[in-house]
């Protein structure tokens, strides 16, 4: 029988660290993809994923079972990715020639180029959404999260989740039409 997330967490809390490796294996793909969408770099996404899981391990004491492990760690991952993005943006050019070392801003050709190459039209349409809206869509329709979980994760009401989902779907649909999709 496949152990549930909560069973694995109980094992980790009881000192069986190996169970955490199962959780990493189980959730590394969605987390890595989230980090990739924020950073646009496979190297950075891998580093960020590692950092996130280490942070999750250290904060496992704060995890409460009813919430579910995936929403819990994804919320943490979103915050981690937002922090990374904010720091990266704030440091750009702050120190002149040294910070000029970081040309990859949110509008950088580097990022756009990789997105175009790897994600295709749907990815491009998603990348035009604000980050929270994009993640809301992916969580709901790619990872099958419930409206209740999304409301908890984004700290908004369920009706606000539905409203945002509806608007985001409309926006992505219109953008896709612009690319020549029905």
């Amino acid at each position: 029988m496949v152990p549930s997330d909560n069973q694995l967490i109980s094992d980790v809390r009881a000192g069986h660290n190996g169970s955490f490796a199962v959780l990493v294996e189980r959730y590394q793909t969605p987390i890595y993809n989230l980090m990739y969408r924020f950073s646009g770099s496979s190297e950075e996404a891998a580093d960020m994923t590692q950092e996130l899981f280490i942070r999750a391990y250290e904060h496992l004491g704060n995890y409460r079972e009813p919430k579910g492990f995936f929403p819990w760690i994804y919320t943490m991952a979103l915050n981690h990715a937002r922090d990374w993005h904010r720091k990266r943006h704030n440091h750009r050019r702050l120190f002149g020639i040294l910070a000029a070392d970081e040309p990859q801003g949110p509008r950088s050709p580097d990022h756009e180029c990789e997105t175009r190459e790897r994600l295709g039209d749907l990815g491009r349409a998603l990348s035009r959404l604000p980050e929270d809206r994009r993640e809301l869509l992916i969580l709901r329709y790619r990872h099958d999260c419930s409206i209740r979980d999304l409301a908890d994760m984004f700290d908004i009401s369920e009706s606000a989740v539905k409203m945002r989902l509806q608007r985001s779907l409309e926006l992505v649909g219109r953008t896709m039409e612009g690319f020549g999709h029905d």
């Binding site: 955490f20 490796a21 990493v24 793909t29 996404a45 891998a46 590692q50 280490i54 790897r118």
Partner: peptide, 12 residues
């Protein structure tokens, strides 16, 4: 996208 191999091992 599949994550690079070895992330789990490195985390542990």
């Amino acid at each position: 996208q599949p994550p690079p191999l070895g992330i789990g091992a490195q985390v542990m």
